[in-house]
Amino acid sequence: MLDIRRRTGWLFFSLMMAQVLLISAQVSTRSGAKLLSLVTFEAFSHVQQGTAGVVHGMRGAWGNYVALRGVRRQNETLQQQLATLQVELQQQRALAARTQRLDALLALRTQAALPTLAAQVIAGNPNPGMLTITINRGTSDGVQADMAVIAPAGVVGRVIGPAARHAARVQLIIDRNAAAGAMGEQTRAGGMVVGTEDNPPLHMELVSNLSELKVGENVVASGLDGIYPKGYLIGKVEKSERGSGLYRNVTVRPAVDFSSLEEVLVVLVPPRPAARDEGEK
C-alpha cells in the first residue's frame, strides 16, 4: 500500500513537471507542440468525420421526413416573399449597375472575386475555454494556416495550424485570443476587433475618441491584418462611448450566428507574409 502511494506520488510529481516543461518550452519558443497536436488532430479528425456524418444523417432524416408539417403554408408564404424579393432584386441590380459606373468614374479598382472553398463544420470546440471548430477540409484541399474563413453573413474566423490532410481547425473570431483589423463601414474609423467572454462577444479597440463611430454602424474587415479580406462584414456596433483615455469603448455584435454554423467558406488566399510573422510573434 505504502509502495503504491509512494509510486503514485512520484508519478504525479513527474507528470506535473513534464507538463510544466512542455508549457514552458512552448511559451519560450512561441509555438505549439506541433507534432503532438498534428498527430492527435489527424487521428481524431476521422472520428469527428464519423460522428458528424451520423449527426447530419439524423438531422437529414428528421428534416426530410418527420418535420414536414405545415410545409404547404410555409411554401405559400415563401412564394409571396419571393415575388417581393424579385422586385427588390431588380431595384438592387439597377443600383449596383449605377455603383459600378461610379466606381469606374472614380478609377477605383474593383475587388476581384476571391477564390473560396466550401467546407462543412464537423466538430465544435473540444475545450469549453477555447472557441474553435473543425472543418472537413485540410491540406489536401489547399487549406493553410491563417486563411480566413467566412460565412454568407460575415467573417467566421481563421484557420489555425497545423491542418490535417482532410480537416482543419478554425479559431472563431469571438474567441478571446482572436483579433482582426476592422473599420466602420460609413465613418471608416479604424481599430481592432477582439474576442471577449462578454455579451456581445466582440470589442473594437484602438478606435480614436475623435472618430464618430455610431451605434448600428456596420463594422467590416480593414484587411490590414493580412488575413481577413477587406470589406467583409464582422458585425454591427452595439455600444460606442467616449473613453477616458485616447480610445472609445466600442462593443460589436457579430454578424454571424455562431450557434447554427454548419457550412463555411475558406478563402483560399494565403495570408500576406507580414501577417504570418506577426501571428508567430
Partner: peptide, 18 residues
C-alpha cells in the same frame, strides 16, 4: 488530447486535469 485538439498551448489542460 483536449489541448492538442483545441489548438493553442498544449499542457495547460493536461496539467490541470492531472
Amino acid at each position: 488530447a483536449q489541448d492538442a485538439l483545441a489548438g493553442g498551448i498544449v499542457g495547460v489542460g493536461g496539467l490541470t486535469k492531472t
